[in-house]
C-alpha cells in the first residue's frame, strides 16, 4: 500500500466516515418514523443533536466516565480505520472490544441504580455478540485464507452464498450493537425507547453524551463495512449487503418487542452461536486450497 493510499484510507475512516454514519443514523430515524406512519425528523437530525449536545454547559458527567467514553469513541475510530486499511480482523475485533469495555467500565463507574443495571445488561450484550463477530472473522478466514480485511476486499468471489448464516447473525449483531429491539435492553439511543432510563448513559450529559453520539456514527459505518466484506467485489454489492443488514435490523426493531436479557443470552449462545458453528463446519468441510 502506497503512502498516498494509506493517508487516503485514513482520511476516509476518520473524516468522511462520521458524515456517512450521521446520514445512516438519520436514515434509521426517518425510516423508523415512516414505518410508524410518521413523517420523522430530517435526515441531518443527528448532526443538530450533536451540535446541541456539544453546546450544553455545566457537564455533570464524572471525569472518569468522560475519559472512558472518549476511549470508546477512539476505539471505534481505530477499528474502522483498521478495516478500511485492510488490517487484521481479529485485531480489529479486539480494539472494538476495548471500546466496549471502556464504555462498560464508564457505566459501572457511576453509582446510580440505572447506570449499574443498564451496564450489567450491556456486559451481557457484549458476551452475546462478541463470539458472533469472531466467528464471522473465522468464516472469512476459512474462505480467503487470511484474517486481513484486505484479503476479503480483494477476494474475487462473493462470500455471502457460502456464509448465509452469518448474514442472519450480523443482523442480530446490528440489533445488539445499535441497541435495537428486541435487544434494546441496556439503553436505547434514539426514538422514544427508554429502558432503564438510558442505562450506562443515565449519568452522562451534554458534551460527554455528544462523544457517544459521535462514536455511534462510526459504529454504524463499521458494522456496514463489516457486513460488506461478505460481498466485497464489486464494492457496491458489499455496500448493498451492509445497507441491507442495517435495513433488516431497522425493520426488526419496529416489528419486534423488547425482550429480556436472559432471552438474549439464550438466543445468542443456544441459537446464533451453534448456527455460526454449523456454517463454519460447512466452510471447513468444503474448503479448497485457500484455507
Amino acid at each position: 500500500m502506497s503512502i498516498v493510499d494509506t493517508v487516503l484510507r485514513l482520511l476516509l475512516a476518520v473524516v468522511v466516515a462520521p458524515w456517512v454514519g450521521m446520514l445512516l443514523v438519520g436514515l434509521d430515524r426517518k425510516l423508523s418514523a415512516r414505518l410508524q406512519g410518521r413523517v420523522g425528523p430530517p435526515l441531518t437530525q443527528p448532526f443538530y443533536d450533536l451540535v446541541k449536545l456539544l453546546a450544553k454547559q455545566g457537564d455533570t458527567t464524572s471525569r472518569f466516565q468522560t475519559a472512558c467514553l472518549a476511549l470508546f469513541l477512539a476505539s471505534n475510530v481505530v477499528s474502522l480505520a483498521l478495516v478500511l486499511m485492510g488490517g487484521d480482523l481479529l485485531v480489529m475485533l479486539f480494539v472494538l472490544a476495548f471500546g466496549a469495555v471502556a464504555y462498560i467500565v464508564g457505566g459501572f463507574s457511576a453509582k446510580s441504580p440505572y447506570s449499574q443495571l443498564g451496564t450489567q445488561r450491556e456486559l451481557l450484550q457484549l458476551l452475546t455478540y462478541e463470539p458472533l463477530l469472531v466467528f464471522l472473522a473465522v468464516g472469512i478466514y476459512l474462505r480467503t485464507g487470511s484474517f486481513l480485511a484486505s484479503a476479503a476486499f480483494s477476494h474475487a468471489e462473493p462470500l455471502l452464498p457460502e456464509m448465509p448464516v452469518f448474514v442472519l447473525t450480523l443482523i442480530a449483531v446490528f440489533g445488539i450493537k445499535l441497541r435495537k429491539s428486541p435487544f434494546d435492553i441496556a439503553s436505547s439511543p434514539h426514538h422514544g425507547h427508554q429502558e432503564v432510563v438510558r442505562g450506562p448513559l443515565s449519568e452522562v450529559a451534554g458534551p460527554s453524551l455528544a462523544l457517544v453520539e459521535l462514536a455511534h456514527w462510526y459504529e454504524v459505518v463499521l458494522l456496514v463495512a463489516l457486513a460488506s466484506l461478505l460481498w466485497a467485489s464489486p464494492i457496491w454489492a458489499g455496500a448493498l449487503v451492509g445497507l441491507g443488514c442495517l435495513l433488516a435490523s431497522i425493520v426488526v426493531d419496529n416489528v419486534a418487542a423488547r425482550l429480556t436479557w436472559s432471552w438474549m443470552l439464550r438466543f445468542g449462545w443456544l441459537v446464533a452461536v451453534p448456527a455460526s458453528i454449523l456454517n463454519l463446519i460447512y466452510l471447513y468441510a468444503t474448503r479448497g486450497g485457500g484455507g
Binding site: 476511549l71 458534551p207 462523544l211
Partner: peptide
C-alpha cells in the same frame, strides 16, 4: 486516545447528583 481522554475529562464540570 489517552491524551484525548485526559483533555476531554479535564474540562470544567458541575457537581452532579445521581438520577433517582
Amino acid at each position: 486516545a489517552l491524551a484525548l481522554a485526559l483533555l476531554l475529562a479535564s474540562s470544567r464540570r458541575r457537581q452532579a447528583v445521581p438520577y433517582l
